[in-house]
Structures are given as C-alpha cells and as structure tokens.
C-alpha cells in the first residue's frame, strides 16, 4: 500500500517536471516561430517594395506622415541635443585647454551616433506608434480581410509603402537632425562660450570624414527599415498575437514602440562595432 502511494507521488513529481520542461520548450518554439514570422514578414515587405505595381501615391502619403510631420520634433530635439553637446563638450574639453576641438566633438557625436539614434527614437514614438495603431485598427475592424477579399494585396497597400517611406524619410530626417544639431552646438559654443567660429567649423570639417557621414546614413537607413518593419508587423498581427478589441490595439502599439526602440539601440551597437 505504502509502496503504491510512493510510486504515484514519484510519478506525479516526474510528470510535473516533464510538464515544466515542456512549457520551456513550448515557449522557446513559440519565440522562434514568432521570429520566423517577423523575418518572413520583412521578406514579403521587401518583395513588394520591388515588385510592380508600386503604389507611389501611398509612398508619398507615408513620407508625408513619417517624414514631414516628424520635422518639428526632429528640429526641436536636434537643436537641443546640439546645444547640450556644445555645453557638455566645452565643459570637458576646456578642462584640458582643447576647446578648439568642440567642433569635431559635436560633429562626430551627432553624425555617427546621436543623430541616427535620437531621430530614430523620436520617429518611433511619433510615427511608428501611429502606424501600428492604424494598421491594428484596420485589422480588428476587418479592413485588411476586406482588402484580401477584394484581391488587393495588403502587403502592397500597407506594408511596402511604409517600409519604403521609412527608408526614404529616416536618412533625410537624420541629416536635418545633424545639421540643426551642429547649428545648435555653434550657437552655444561660438555665440555663448566664445569659441571662434572659424575654429568650430574648420576643425569640424577637418576631422569629419566621408566614412563618418556614410556610417550615419547606413545607420539611419537600417533604422528606417526597423521602425516601419516592427511597427507594421505589430499592427498587422494585432488580432492574432495580442487579441482583438481596443486592448489588443493598445498592446500592439506599446509592443511596437518598445520592440523597435530596443531593436534600434541593439542594432546600433552592432552597426557601430561593424563599422568601427
């Protein structure tokens, strides 16, 4: 009798352990499946970026939304980032008497790192969330299914224009961010702290190389892809991955912003170490 009970409890312990391991396995498989889904989604998106007919009207509309309407945010953040860099750079450089290098410091920091990353984060917050929410609502109100039923490919109408618009807008926004930031650094460094204007720009153009500018452009291009990819993905799979209804859309939007922000910073590290 006692032996029998022991046998059962051992069996149930075994069963529980197996169940626990099974859960880990299921979670891992689910994560991999989701990653594959995201990868295939991006491939599909790229495919419809190059397969005609390309919806130029939609692309222009998305550039207007992602690019132009982010201008105010980009101008403001760029100006203040540059101004703060001017202060900080002057503070640390003047300690060892090399405030002549304020220009290169501001220019390189903005062009290589801060410009691409900060403008990508701002665009994620401003445009990425809206894109995810828009597509998410289209999904839960069955507009995407309607597109499918009419024989219109949702990738061609919704995803590809966003990816292309992201790829076009981000480098331009980053360039604007950089130029405004350099001007902000000029305002603080030259006008307020008294570094000579010729030194500021001369040293900057002496130290900034074409490779640095190209690095910034490559980064912002890839960030443009990441933003539109993650945000359209989260929107597109709203009902399936996060549940239907208003709550599903809010979840999808939050996930879109969080995932793409994290992905931008992680990818930025890899880009920097690859192009170092």
């Amino acid at each position: 009798m006692v032996d029998h009970i022991k046998q059962i409890s051992a069996h149930s312990l075994m069963y529980r352990t197996m169940e626990w391991i099974r859960q880990i396995g299921a979670y891992t498989l689910e994560s991999i499946r989701r990653m594959g889904l995201m990868g295939l989604f991006l491939l599909n998106g790229f495919l419809y970026c190059v397969v005609p007919p390309i919806k130029f009207g939609r692309i222009v509309k998305q550039i207007h939304f992602i690019g132009l309407q982010s201008m105010v945010v980009i101008l403001l953040t760029g100006l203040f980032a540059g101004m703060v860099l001017g202060f900080q750079g002057y503070y640390s450089l003047s300690r060892f008497g090399s405030d002549a290098f304020l220009g290169p410091m501001v220019g390189l920091a903005l062009i290589k790192e801060l410009g691409p990353v900060l403008s990508a984060l701002m665009v994620t917050g401003r445009a990425g969330s809206a894109v995810a929410a828009e597509i998410g609502i289209m999904r839960i109100s069955e507009q995407i299914d309607a597109l499918d039923l009419m024989g219109l490919n949702p990738y061609r109408y919704l995803i590809a224009p966003n990816i292309l618009a992201g790829m076009i807008s981000m480098p331009l926004l980053t360039a604007i961010f950089d130029v405004v930031g350099i001007f902000g650094g000029y305002l603080i460094g030259v006008k307020l702290l008294g570094v000579s204007s010729g030194v500021y720009f001369g040293e900057m153009s002496h130290y900034v190389e074409m490779a640095d500018v190209l690095e910034g452009i490559y980064k912002s291009l890839s960030f443009g892809v990441i933003i539109s990819w993650v945000c359209t993905f989260k929107g597109y799979y709203t009902g399936i991955l996060t549940g239907f209804g208003a709550e599903g859309v809010s979840k999808a939007t939050t996930q879109a912003v969080v995932t793409s922000s994290v992905l931008i910073l992680v990818w930025d590290y890899f880009m920097t170490s690859a192009l170092f």
Binding site: L68, V179, E209, M210
Partner: peptide
Amino acid sequence: VGLFVLAGILCLAYLSVKLGK
C-alpha cells in the same frame, strides 16, 4: 513632401560635401 525631401537632401549634401569632403 517635395519640400521635405529637398530639405533633407540639402542637409545630406552639406554633410557630405562640406564636412565629409
């Protein structure tokens, strides 16, 4: 959008020609 693209390209050109030499 045209204005935005032009402004962006101008900034890119400034960065690459003036600073990137």
